[in-house]
Design a protein around this nucleic acid. Sequence first.
DNA 1: CTGAAAGCGCTTACAG
DNA 2: CTGAAAGCGCTTACAG
Lengths: 342, 342
Amino acid sequence: MRTSSDKSKPEKITVVEVAAAAGVSISAVSRAFSNGSCSEKMREKVFAAAKLLDYKPNRLARGLKSKSSLIGILVTDFENPAYLPILQQFSAQIQQQNCHSLLVNASDTPTIEEALELVMEYHIDGLVVTATSLPQMLVDACKAQGIPVVCFARNSLSQGASAVYCDNFANGRIAADLLIDGGYSKPAFVSGPVAALTSRERQRGFINRLVERGCQDWQIIEGGNHSYDAGYEATCKLLELHERPDSIFFTDDIMACGGLDAARYRYNLSVPEELGVIGVDDIQLASSPAYQLTTIKQPFEQMVTACVETLFKQIQQPELSAEQIVFPCDLVLRQSTRAVKS
Amino acid sequence: MRTSSDKSKPEKITVVEVAAAAGVSISAVSRAFSNGSCSEKMREKVFAAAKLLDYKPNRLARGLKSKSSLIGILVTDFENPAYLPILQQFSAQIQQQNCHSLLVNASDTPTIEEALELVMEYHIDGLVVTATSLPQMLVDACKAQGIPVVCFARNSLSQGASAVYCDNFANGRIAADLLIDGGYSKPAFVSGPVAALTSRERQRGFINRLVERGCQDWQIIEGGNHSYDAGYEATCKLLELHERPDSIFFTDDIMACGGLDAARYRYNLSVPEELGVIGVDDIQLASSPAYQLTTIKQPFEQMVTACVETLFKQIQQPELSAEQIVFPCDLVLRQSTRAVKS
DNA sequence: CTGAAAGCGCTTACAG
DNA sequence: CTGAAAGCGCTTACAG
């Protein structure tokens, strides 16, 4: 027999307790806490009782019939420091929508599909994909469940998925112009993982523009992961070649930083005189005086905002069709490339 | 009326469908998929039917009576690049346990409590805290719900929480010895946020050892956030002083990198001759040739592993009491401090 | 606007 | 080991 002062076993506070305390029905409590229609005085009564009892709705139970308030975030590039602030912004903005982030590590998992399978068991309301590649079957699976998916910083070739990204082809062309204008004549491109669409687009644009400008003396090397080490290694390979490049366009900043260090400290090359270097992203490190990296800035903050907006718009209105939002990029001139010859 | 070829509305596959297909009871299906006891042939029958129907258990429903398989990860220091690999490892290891990570951003949220409140609505099975400070009331709340919490890379002053961390007091002493032995006589300490226990411990150990070694000419400055910019700013303040330090112990590497850049590029000081610099963590950047930072390495990988192990042990056996696991740290000598004078 | 009732998909005592 | 039944905490038609 328990008395009111018996605190040993904290009672579970559910809609039932709140309803009783407020002297209303369970449905009323539910409505007051969801979007349901109910009068102002009803809402007040319910909230007062809830406050008193310190009631917290159980989202698992809610998710059973309604939305789970869970957003999946698929991540592969944990080696690229750009993703830490990106994760911060995603989680902050998702929390602002009264939802939470299910962080899914798709880097070690044998396949992205496998990771997703797990996510689907939680009946997420939406999915953000920052992964290198997005298999069509995954998008189809989400579609079948009515889960909107939006790709971040990569365009989706898939039918059903929205995407928020930059024009990577254009970025490649910008890089080509910058190097040619700077008087470099033997440019190289260091790519990301072969599967990375973004990297392939940058490469296409880069080479496309080089050829337009009459430059034939270019080369391409596969860099691998979006990581410092991969950039360092790729640069070593290039600089060991008989036909050394005089400038390198890296598919992202962290690789470019690795490359800069290789050039300077292992090959004693002066940057930008003996080797020009340009990256993409504008991560924090790029602006540090130790690197002073010329780069093409992706407006990540605005992109995250657009991504979250699109996602929640589609969650609210499932009938909406997928959307593609393309952001322009800014060239940020620093010290790793020669000034444009006038 | 639907025919078997009517694929327009994919039927929901639940335990009911699987049970029917396998010709067994719903309870049997549930047992086969959970820890339940059931015969080998029963399990086979159920799995065969499940495979056929592509059945995926609904974790939300399971969580209602059983565990949610959700682990909360509280993060505040999104400006410290050390946390990206740490997040990767946590998410990977949690997924390995057939659970998923609820990433909770506690940096922008007015209070950590508020973020936690949301987490509790999902009835997480356990909580990892990498946040700067951990209010006791938060631990109490978890205790009341039977949710084990373990602090990562910080010791908990709280009763109920486990912790996996390094001996920060000892680290401070190591840094002091290194600077004194290197012939520096005017050391300074750059702290993290005032609330950060780890930083305070490092400071205590550092000063404690300096005094032991007879050094009185030291100073302390509050650095603020664990970020590059905070390290840069704090260093500028120190180097503008009339009584300039000749060496600085930063409470972490990313601040030390900021400090190094300030010293070298803004004040044209040569490191380690005119200014000695030492950090803590051994982040990737610390080993790059651009920084070559002497540091005290925290064995993050092993710490994450220990953290996850402890957490799941406590989830399995709730009667276990909180555990404190202390890791030793290694001094990593690079080029930002003078060699020890022999 | 409000309430009684059925149901979301699973788990877990309770019998057999 | 297996099955029938009650229940987890909420939501949502359906009446009033």
